[in-house]
Structures are given as C-alpha cells and as structure tokens.
Amino acid sequence: MTHDAESGLKLDGYLPYRLSVASNAVSGLIARAYQDRFGLTIPQWRLICVLAEDGGLTQNQIVARTVMDKVTVSRAAQGLLKRRLVGRSDHHADGRSHVLTLTHEGSRLHSEIAPLALAYEAALIAGLAPEEVNLLKRLLSRLQSAAGALAGESLPPSLR
C-alpha cells in the first residue's frame, strides 16, 4: 500500500458519511415508533409538524420549509388526505395550487405525538451537556448552509 492510499479517504472518518449514518440511525429509530404506533411515515410526520407550526401551506411552501422533494411531499400529503389528517382547499391567489391544513384529527394526533418526539430527542442527547447540544445545532446549521451554498453556486476550482 502506498503512502497516498494510506492518507486518502477513510470512510469512517469522512464527515458526509458519518452524518448520513447518524441521520439514518436516528431517523430509523423514530420512523419505527411513528409507523408502529401511529401509522405515519417520517415525511408524513414532518408535514404534520410543519402545518402545526406554520398553519396552512401550499405543497411548494412545504417543499421549501422541509427540504423534502416534491414527490415525497405529494405522497405524504396524499396519505394524510386519505386519513383525513389534513384538508386541502383552493389557494386564493393561485388557482393551480392548493393549501394544506391540519384537520381537527390531525391536530389531535400532533398533540399526541409531539411529547413522544421530544422524549426521543431528550434520550438521544442525554449524554451531551447543554452547551454541546447548542454547539451541535449551530454546527449542523452551518453545514446545511454550506451545502446549500455549494449546491446553488458554481463550484470552487478545487471541486471542478
């Protein structure tokens, strides 16, 4: 093995890989709880949360707010509409668009699941000091911003 190969990429030390593995582990844990207890997918739960926080939104607004793709949001919305957890009405300014809102049942379900979600979060961060949690949130926000900037701008010469 050459020196270059030894000092090259090591998957376990590669930050994008580590973020993905951690995200998958957390999402998988929570997805099982939402699916088993409430029959919801993660995208459906995210859509419910966004509507609970922000009120009525169009699917395009949900896409922007959650950073989920249009197909995922559409499928989540369809499933929630079938279960009557969200309602759909015409958008007053754009006849091609619809506004999604939580129904009474959707709001009730959100109120039931939110404490469970917070309990999972508390269990996940139990081994971290409050200042570590705050630092982690700030760092994740900065990484998300950097990824957005790289995706939306021309790549720097080193990445071409």
Rank of each mutant, 00 (worst) to 15 (best):
R160L: 14
I125F: 15
P157E: 14
L124G: 02
S27W: 06
L155C: 07
G55D: 11
C49G: 11
P157V: 03
V67H: 14
R138A: 14
A22K: 07
A77W: 07
S7P: 03
L155W: 06
G28Q: 03
L150G: 02
K137C: 11
I30L: 15
A119P: 02
R142K: 11
L100V: 01
L9E: 11
L109I: 01
Q144N: 09
I113K: 04
L116I: 13
H91L: 10
A77K: 11
E6P: 01
S23N: 04
T72W: 09
L159Q: 03
R46A: 12
E153S: 13
V133D: 08
Q44P: 05
E112W: 07
E121G: 08
E153A: 10
L150S: 02
H98I: 00
V67T: 10
G95W: 09
L19M: 12
R65V: 01
Q35V: 01
G148I: 06
L139N: 13
Q44G: 08
D36M: 06
A22I: 09
L128E: 15
L140A: 12
T103I: 07
L11T: 02
A149S: 10
R18W: 06
D4R: 09
L102M: 11
L155I: 01
Q78G: 02
A126N: 10
L136Q: 09
L128H: 14
L29G: 06
A76G: 15
Y34T: 00
T58G: 10
T66H: 03
G95P: 03
G95R: 12
P16N: 05
R88N: 05
L116T: 07
A76L: 06
L11P: 01
H3T: 12
N24F: 13
A76Y: 08
V63K: 13
R83K: 12
N24T: 06
H104C: 08
F38T: 00
L81D: 11
N60P: 02
T72G: 08
R142D: 12
A64P: 01
V50E: 07
R84P: 07
T72E: 15
A129T: 04
A123E: 15
D69V: 00
W45T: 02
P115L: 15
L139Q: 12
T72P: 02
G87N: 09
L143T: 04
I113S: 06
A64N: 10
V21P: 06
E105P: 00
I113W: 09
A5E: 15
H3R: 13
S107N: 11
L40N: 02
T72A: 15
E121Q: 11
L124V: 03
P115A: 05
V99G: 05
D94C: 05
Q144W: 10
A22S: 12
V133R: 10
G8W: 13
G95A: 13
V67W: 12
E131I: 05
I125D: 07
L140P: 04
L47M: 14
Y17Q: 07
G87I: 01
T103D: 04
V26T: 02
Q61V: 00
A146V: 05
N134F: 08
A146K: 09
A77H: 08
G28P: 04
P16T: 02
L150I: 00
F38G: 00
L15G: 03
